[in-house]
Structures are given as structure tokens and as C-alpha cells.
Design a protein around this nucleic acid. Structure first.
Length: 267
DNA sequence: AGTCAGGCTATTA
DNA sequence: TAATAGCCTGAC
């Protein structure tokens, strides 16, 4: 079906680094697996085309693409900030949305992401999905394995290129298996509390915890600081970045800044 | 060939 | 408490 959407760019979303599972088909279409179904998306101007029914869109895809957040408010916030660099970055990435992705998938993905590069992260995740062997519905891709779909031994046996992260992943799998309601508890917690809870797990430090809060729990006040963000703050905000101004939307601003930075470095 | 990647843990002082 | 070596390994 076709959906008219403003403040929405499939390309920006797919390439903003928040989701490692978008596969480019051509310039304006992508393949992605959401909730075990393989969707094919394409966009022309402000119309998104997606192979789903109306009820699928209403039931969860509209939420997945964060249609209940008013992005015009974010635009106003940035445009009135007087923050020249944020305005510049916003112009490039104004089509980015913070997706409401599956929490478990985000925890595993960002554990893998540490001290790692995006192509390699994507490769590991792809291999993990493939080796756990559940084909997504309606396509050629594989769905992301639930903790119960996988044996911890898999991490060592299969050649997933995970390196020293293997013990972290085994630990989190075992933890979630033994504490089946942990993910649900996390979803109930406010940002600070969830962050603190995540930091208790091996391999989850401040940066990964903030990514999980932002991308897996939709706490858009979380502001993950990675090497790129560290560098851009040094470059554009020598006096320091004013987190307070952006308040509860700091994480969305982080995405614009981050996207601008990676785009700049690859062009 | 060497550096660096969307960092974290463990060990020092 | 603060600083920093070491870590898997592929992409560039």
C-alpha cells in the first residue's frame, strides 16, 4: 500500500546507522525484516510504498516508523535553536526518524557494534540471522533470532566474526533465558533507571546502554556518545554541546549530527 | 601495512 | 577516582 508521510526519508532512515538490517535494492528501495516479515519499501517524494495490508500498517508498522511523534516540533526546536551546525545537519537528515525497533534485537546488535565498523556489524548480524535459520515471511531474508531460538554455543561455533564480544553475547542470552520478564521490566522503566539496569550486564557500557535506550526503548532524551560524536563535538562545539537546550529530544538531534558526520566522511 | 571502527573490562596509580 | 593498555578482526 501507499502512505503519504512528511518528515520521512527511507534512505536517511536506512543509512543513519540505527538499524543494521536495511538492505539496499536500488536508489530508493530497501528490503528489511520487521517482526519476522520481509518488507520491500520504496519511496517517491513523500509517498512510501510498502508491501503490507492496511491493518498491518495500522497495527504496528506506523508505530515502527514512529508516526505518533510530531517531527514538525523537532524542526521548530532545531530551527529556533540558533545552533548553526545543528541546523546544517538537520537540513541533510530531516527525513530521519527514530524507529521503534525490537528491544532484544537492539540489545544484541549494539553489543556487537562496540569498537566495530558498520559493514562488519551488518555482516555479523546477517550471519547470526542466517545461521539461526528462520526465514522471514514473504521474502528471502532471515528473521532475527529470539533468545529461545538459539544455542549460546552458536556464537563460538559459527563463524560470525564477533571476536572478543562472544562472551558478552553468551552472557546476555543466558540472562534473558533465565529472566524471561527482564525485557518487559526494562520497557516499564524511565530512562535513567533503564540505563542503570542495562549497565549491570557485561559488555554494556555507557555508549551501548544509551543506544539501547534510544533505539530499543525510544527514550529520545538519551544521547549516545561514540567516537564520531566525540569528534564532532570537538570540531563544532569547542565550548561544549548544550544538551539542556534539546532536553527530551537530545537523542533525535544526536541522529542528525551523527548522520551528517558519517555522510561527510564518506563523501 | 597500518589505522581505526557507533567501547568495555581490568589493571594500575 | 582517574587514566589507560589490551582486545577480535575486517574495512579502508
Amino acid at each position: 500500500m501507499e502512505i503519504k508521510l512528511d518528515y520521512f526519508s527511507l534512505k536517511d532512515i536506512a543509512e543513519s546507522g540505527q538499524c543494521f538490517r536495511f538492505k539496499k535494492i536500488d536508489d530508493n528501495s530497501y528490503s528489511v525484516v520487521i517482526r519476522g516479515k520481509n518488507y520491500i519499501l520504496s519511496q517517491k517524494e513523500n509517498v512510501l510504498n510498502i508491501n503490507c495490508s492496511e491493518s498491518e500498517w495500522e497495527d504496528f508498522l506506523s508505530s515502527y516508523f514512529d508516526c505518533d511523534t510530531d517531527y514538525s516540533e523537532i524542526e521548530k526546536l532545531v530551527m529556533n535553536s540558533g545552533d548553526e551546525h545543528a541546523i546544517e545537519a538537520y537540513k541533510l537528515g530531516s527525513g530521519i526518524r527514530i524507529l521503534r525497533q525490537d528491544l532484544w534485537e537492539i540489545i544484541v546488535s549494539f553489543l556487537i557494534s562496540q569498537n566495530n565498523n558498520i559493514p562488519r556489524i551488518k555482516g555479523s548480524i546477517e550471519a547470526l540471522c542466517r545461521v539461526s535459520g528462520r526465514k522471514a515471511w514473504g521474502g528471502e531474508e532471515y528473521s532475527f533470532p529470539k533468545a529461545s531460538d538459539i544455542s549460546p554455543l552458536l556464537f563460538e561455533k559459527a563463524n560470525l566474526g564477533l571476536g572478543y564480544r562472544v562472551p558478552y553475547l553468551k552472557e546476555i542470552y543466558e540472562w534473558v533465558e533465565e529472566n524471561p520478564f527482564w525485557l518487559d521490566y526494562l520497557k516499564e522503566m524511565p530512562y535513567e533507571e533503564a540505563r542503570k539496569e542495562l549497565l549491570k550486564r557485561k559488555g554494556i557500557g555507557p555508549k551501548v546502554a544509551d543506544c539501547i535506550c534510544l533505539f530499543g526503548l525510544h527514550h529520545v532524551e538519551a544521547f549516545p556518545i561514540d567516537t564520531h560524536v566525540k569528534q564532532l563535538i570537538k570540531k563544532y562545539y569547542p565550548k561544549g554541546f548544550d544538551f539542556k537546550y534539546y532536553g527530551k529530544y537530545a537523542g533525535i538531534i544526536q541522529q542528525y549530527l551523527f548522520y551528517y558526520e558519517i555522510k561527510e566522511s564518506t563523501s
